[in-house]
């Protein structure tokens, strides 16, 4: 048995262990699940050490002697107090330091998600499709306006919004089916191809 075959066998074992959940919960699945969590987290430790601690903390302080970096490094280490009853307030400092960039989020999210979308929604209606999009956008916005009861003419208008949303959800559902099936195809391709060599 070649090294590749052994590797594929191990991968197939874990794949089938997870699939076994389809029949019912069982020790193979639980074993695989527990191992998955551990390996995933264990994987992050050396990665963070080599890819971020060394270049962003160790190198500036110990090689470039930029000692000011000790301040953010010490501030970062305050994260460990998050689980302490009395000192958890210390962990707020690194959190708020990272959170501050949200200041840019106010104008930029307004621009990206509201203004740009509004601008194109207000473009001249030059064909049937732009008209349909215009009607849909307006009726959905009206649907989400709950300060007025959805009755009478207003209710009929908001109903159009519901129809649009149903089409939108239908499209999302169609795509979701495709996505889920694709993931299974990936695993079956591995089992049938790489492991059992049944695919030509």
């Amino acid at each position: 048995m070649s090294f590749e075959a052994i590797s594929n066998f191990v991968a197939a074992f874990f794949t089938l262990s997870i699939f076994s959940f389809l029949y019912k919960d069982n020790p193979f699945y639980k074993f695989a699940e527990a191992m998955f969590v551990g390996v995933t987290m264990g994987y992050a430790i050396p990665l963070v050490y080599y890819n971020t601690f060394i270049p962003f903390v160790y190198r500036p302080i110990f090689i470039e002697h930029n000692f000011i970096i000790l301040i953010p490094a010490l501030m970062g280490s305050l994260y460990i107090f998050r689980f302490s009853k009395n000192l958890s307030w210390l962990s707020r400092y690194p959190i708020v330091f990272g959170m501050a960039i949200i200041g840019m989020g106010v104008p930029l999210s307004m621009h990206a998600y509201v203004l740009v979308q509004m601008r194109i929604a207000m473009m001249p209606i030059d064909n049937i499709n732009t008209f349909i999009i215009f009607v849909g956008t307006i009726t959905i916005l009206l649907y989400f306006f709950f300060s007025k009861a959805h009755k009478g003419v207003y209710g009929k208008i908001t109903n159009i919004g519901i129809w649009y949303m149903m089409v939108g959800f239908g499209a999302s559902f169609g795509y979701t089916v495709m996505a889920r099936i694709s993931l299974l195809i990936g695993r079956i391709q591995f089992l049938m191809g790489d492991w059992l060599h049944l695919m030509k």
């Binding site: 989020g105 930029l108 999210s109 990206a112 999302s172 169609g174 795509y175 979701t176 996505a179 694709s182």
Partner: peptide
């Protein structure tokens, strides 16, 4: 989209799972 595109005009494209496509 929110930061690179809105602030710097960067060209952004997406390779997404079908769930997010619509």
């Amino acid at each position: 989209i929110e930061y690179a595109r809105a602030r710097f005009g960067a060209n952004v494209a997406a390779g997404v799972t079908a769930v997010m496509a619509a």
